[in-house]
Design a protein around this nucleic acid. Structure first.
Length: 422
RNA sequence: GCGAGUGUCGCCAAGAGGUCAAGGCCCCGGUUUGUGGUACCGGUAUACGUGGGUUCGAUUCCCAUCACUCGCCCCA
């Protein structure tokens, strides 16, 4: 019985890993240029971190976590990156570093969902978090950076749209929550069970409901307009308006979407989302982010404003594949193919050439020269370095250019000089 | 959790209720035993997801099951 991969946990094979490397490298280069340092938190955290950080009424926490239990400790494979970064920020005293503290991360996340196009149980995110500054400029730096990353991936700008919204202060949200409870009090029987639960734990999330009957009811009751009104009168509005102004100054186009409520509880004020205009089906959100001014304090750190985003890399990869396939062509992985009946000579030469920075593979079996060349060709080598019986007796090697077919015989002692000038 | 679709060699892919289940790619060998890429010839493989049922006979029909894919939901 063969053993298969766990559902939703795909292998990334060598043919795809070049593209992955480029995507990851473009990300880290872009964010590094903006002063973000890479942090690599563990994949496993105490479950409580996500319950408190992401929010224990969110779908992520209530039904999507991979949790294991050992010696009465519950630990969970990270379903997102922010909570772990914030935990590390607090734990290592990064809050005492000069502000702002800029961090970036990259790696696999785990959510127990039903796999489909653009959604796996193990997937990869790349994101940044900016700590310690509450200004609109900080919001905009992060959004600007997200757009720069998209450019670095060479995704055409018209392929993506940016939506922003103000979800208000915690006080706004409390006011709104009470308003929702009041408006829906008499509709208890008309709303879906999920919404009934939301009403108790986190009423603002009813705006996220996709059930038609709920949507139309909330539409009639003008719930999202109500949120917008409360927020517009609240303390966060001036800064949010400033954020919009700055986006305008930078010629970053966006749409205001008052229905944009992120699925994680920690957001305050500015939230944003970048969606692909086509090509990804229903899983079209490629980036989500926003401000979370309460989270650090909520996880036991000193009150610290923060803002960040995360990209879903599988979705980015499929956009890049669609529009920029050549950019991800695997360059020939092999420069030089070394073959000799004398294995130790071949292995030594290969080592020498690798030390010169060449990509080198070795023939591991004695074969006729024609077979070696065939093998070299199949591996995509550009040069073959061969030593058959004759050359071996003479202490020489054949250097053959596999494109032109030209070849020359070189003394063993001349090889290093020859290849170091290539 | 709910709905739909698909399951034939490593990959792609024909097929039909009944002799050996096409073909292509890949891989291996040969023509060319020390010179590759093209061409031609040949070869390898426990391939009809699994379990039942109908039938003289099923890979083909039916049922169930599993896996994968897609959609809902949710999110990146």
């Amino acid at each position: 019985m063969p053993i298969n991969a766990v559902k939703g946990m795909p292998d990334i094979l060598p043919v795809d890993s070049a593209a992955w490397q480029q995507i990851e490298q473009a990300f880290t280069e872009t964010v590094s240029r903006a002063g973000y340092g890479l942090i690599r938190p563990p994949l496993l955290e105490n479950t409580e971190l996500f319950e408190r950080g992401v929010g224990d009424s969110t779908d992520i926490v209530t039904k999507e976590m991979f949790t294991i239990e050992r010696e009465h400790r519950r630990m969970t494979l990270r379903p997102e990156g922010t909570a772990g970064v914030v935990r590390a920020f607090i734990e290592h005293g990064l809050s005492r570093r000069p502000k702002p503290v800029r961090l970036a991360y990259l790696g696999p996340m785990f959510r127990y969902e039903r796999p489909q196009a653009g959604r796996q149980r193990q997937f990869h995110q790349a994101g940044v978090e900016l700590f310690g500054v509450d200004s609109a400029a900080a919001d905009v730096e992060v959004i600007q950076l997200a757009m720069a990353v998209i450019r670095a991936w060479q995704i055409p700008p018209e392929r993506c749209v940016l939506s922003v919204n103000n979800v208000g202060t915690p006080e706004d949200r409390n006011t709104f929550s009470e308003a929702i409870r009041a408006s829906l009090a008499s509709f208890d029987h008309k709303i879906c069970p999920d919404c009934r639960a939301r009403l108790i734990k986190n009423p603002i999330r009813v705006l996220d409901c996709k059930v038609d009957s709920c949507k139309s009811l909330y539409g009639e009751l003008k719930l999202s307009e109500k949120l917008a009104e409360i927020v517009a009168d609240g303390d966060s509005q001036p800064a949010f308006e400033q954020t919009c102004l700055l986006l305008g100054d930078l010629a970053i186009t966006y749409t205001l979407n008052s229905g944009l409520v992120r699925g994680l509880d920690y957001y305050t004020r500015t939230v944003f989302e970048i969606t692909a205009t086509s090509g990804l089906g229903s899983q079209n959100a490629v980036c989500g982010g926003g401000r979370y001014n309460q989270l650090v304090a909520q996880l036991g750190g000193p009150p610290t404003p923060a803002v960040g985003f995360a990209f879903g890399l599988e979705r980015i990869l499929s956009l890049c594949n669609e529009f920029n396939r050549e950019a991800f062509c695997l360059k020939p992985a092999v420069d030089i193919f070394v073959a000799s009946d004398n294995a130790s000579a071949a292995l030594q030469i290969a080592e020498m050439l690798r030390n010169l920075g060449k990509f080198v593979t070795v023939a591991l079996e004695s074969k006729p020269i024609g077979k070696w060349l065939e093998q070299a060709n199949k591996q995509g080598a550009t040069t073959a370095l061969l030593q058959g019986e004759n050359e071996r007796a003479a202490g020489a090697w054949i250097i053959k250019d596999l494109q032109s077919g030209h070849q020359q015989v070189y003394e063993h002692s001349g090889l290093q000089h020859y290849f170091s000038s290539q």
